[in-house]
Design a protein around this nucleic acid. Structure first.
Length: 466
RNA sequence: GGUCCCUUCGUCUAUCGGUUAGGACACAUGGUUUUCAUCCAUGAAAGAGGGGUUCGAUUCCCCUAGGGACCGCCA
């Protein structure tokens, strides 16, 4: 039994979108589940569009999610010679031929097909023509001699048996007229040379698979298993693309979605294991299988991502959450000053209660993070003379304490409620506004304790409140 | 237009011929509460349509409809 080997093969022509990330995740999980290997192959043969920065971004994104690949990344462009060698061998053995059609001719054929509303497929003109007919001024492209008769069956691990008439697959180009290999050639040669056992990729590759299988057969290579996973759709029901809003990993990390939460969400999008919703990393690996992958495309739902993220925020260890938060602020907000870090850490237990994202924690903890609070325009209006009196009375009591505790604060507040003949809100609200600038926020005792004696004194001395 | 794939609550999904069709998110209502939240309880919410097969179909088969993917000398 050979060891399972999978791969993720993105082209570095833009940031990964989360469909691609899910494909990577499934491949990775499957290899881990099977105790196999997982590789990253960078398909950078499109020189025009491939960029190093995108490659680095992809590597970073995978790392962020915790997807680690075995060995070095495999750079496809470095293997071009191998691809060409295979093309020549196919040519030599009669599985491919030189096509002398010019670009213009092909374009013309396509245009006409479109006008007539008939499907375009290369007319196989040079499949049987003699080399001696070749025009001298045209450099040939090499086309694969695709099967014409009968049909082929793909035994797909997700979709089951898929049968297709061979004549619907054209004689696809494997070597361009500039001598460079095309995708289907490169991908199959690489997959073979990398000893891939399972090719798990998006459903949009299915036709390619039929082409690649033919190359495998012509080269007498063993076939890997194929699994075509349904695509992720936008809310509108279309294939997700890089151009869509909120489709890249960065779109989620920047609002404070944590890696584990996104991983959990992506795992459950198109895959299920009984009624289980929350999967730790270990559980993901333990339970992941190809049988659990659904056949129908699924829509991206930000509310669900948010709710899973909320679950993780509330359930992971607080020191872990703290680390995520500090890292998040560093990357997407501003670095938290060290004297504030400690206060935040102590306050996480209540700041997280009303947060779905790290960004929410950042916002909820604003009053701790900033040196000068900003008053909410509407809320400051609630500070009338009566409220100011409450605040100053609180202040005169608070000043006497040197170590605020919940008990002491409670007794002060209760006295104030009585002496001002009001309720908790009558005391709590002015104080909250005075200390945080907003009427919304954590419990008033939490606020005071989180700020500390010195800071509370300072804020209560604000002229606006006088 | 051709080929292929898909179709259970709004969304993600469970069900592998016999269930009051289950769970989660979202939503609604009520309760707890110190504002906003959290939390708890309850509720509403689904098998696209039509034919078969079968004692019995959400489940198996066919047709229709709808949706999607592919149809590059991109990957």
């Amino acid at each position: 039994m050979t060891k399972v080997a999978t791969r993720f093969a993105p082209s570095p022509t833009g940031p990964l979108h989360i469909g691609g990330i899910r494909t990577a995740l499934f491949n990775w999980l499957y290899s881990k589940n099977q105790n196999g290997k997982f590789f990253l192959r960078v398909e950078d043969t499109d020189k025009e569009r491939s960029k190093d920065e995108y490659k680095n971004q992809i590597v970073q994104d995978l790392k962020w999610l915790g997807i680690n690949y075995d060995g070095e990344e495999y750079i496809q462009s470095k293997k071009i010679d191998d691809h060409i060698k295979v093309a020549n061998e196919l040519l030599k053995n009669g599985y491919a031929y030189k096509c002398y059609c010019s670009n213009d001719e092909i374009e013309d054929q396509k245009k006409r097909a479109k006008q007539k509303k008939i499907p375009y497929i290369y007319n196989r003109e040079w499949r049987d023509r003699k080399e001696s007919d070749a025009p001298k001024n045209v450099k040939p492209a090499i086309r694969f001699k695709s099967k014409i008769d009968g049909s082929s069956i793909l035994k797909d691990l997700v979709q089951g048996d898929v049968e297709i008439e061979n004549n619907t697959i054209e004689d696809f180009i494997i070597l361009r007229n500039d001598g460079t290999p095309t995708y289907n050639l490169s991908a199959s040669v690489d997959d073979h040379q990398m000893n891939m056992t399972h090719i798990i990729r998006g459903d949009d590759h299915k036709i390619n698979t039929f082409k690649q299988i033919q190359i495998y057969h012509a080269m007498k290579w063993d076939l890997p298993f194929f699994a075509h996973i349904p695509l992720i759709h936008t809310i509108e029901g279309k294939k997700l693309s890089k151009r869509d809003k909120a489709s890249t990993l960065n779109d989620y990390s920047k609002i404070g979605i944590m890696p584990d939460a996104l991983r959990n969400y992506l795992l459950r999008l198109g895959w299920s294991y009984k009624d289980k919703e929350i999967f730790s990393l270990e559980e993901s690996i333990k339970y992941f299988n190809l049988e659990g992958i659904g056949k129908s495309p699924s829509k991206l739902d930000i509310r669900r991502i948010l709710s899973i993220n909320e679950h993780y925020i509330k359930n992971i260890e607080e020191n872990e959450l703290f680390d995520h938060f500090i890292e998040y602020c560093k990357l997407f907000k501003s670095e938290i000053k060290s004297n504030k870090k400690e206060k935040i850490e102590k306050s996480l237990s209540f700041l997280k209660n009303k947060a779905k994202t790290l960004q929410d924690i950042f916002n909820n903890g604003q009053y701790i993070i900033v040196d000068e609070i900003e008053f909410n325009r509407d809320d400051i209006k609630l500070i009338d003379d009566k409220a100011k009196k409450v605040i100053s009375d609180f202040k005169s009591q608070f000043i006497k304490i040197d170590q605020p505790s919940r008990e002491v604060l409670e007794s002060i507040v209760n006295e104030l409620i009585e002496s001002h003949n009001t309720n908790f809100k009558g005391v709590g609200q002015p104080l909250r506004i005075a200390l945080t600038g907003s009427k919304f926020g954590p419990g008033i005792y939490d606020i005071i304790l989180s700020l500390g004696k010195e800071e509370v004194d300072k804020r209560l001395a604000n002229k606006i409140l006088a």
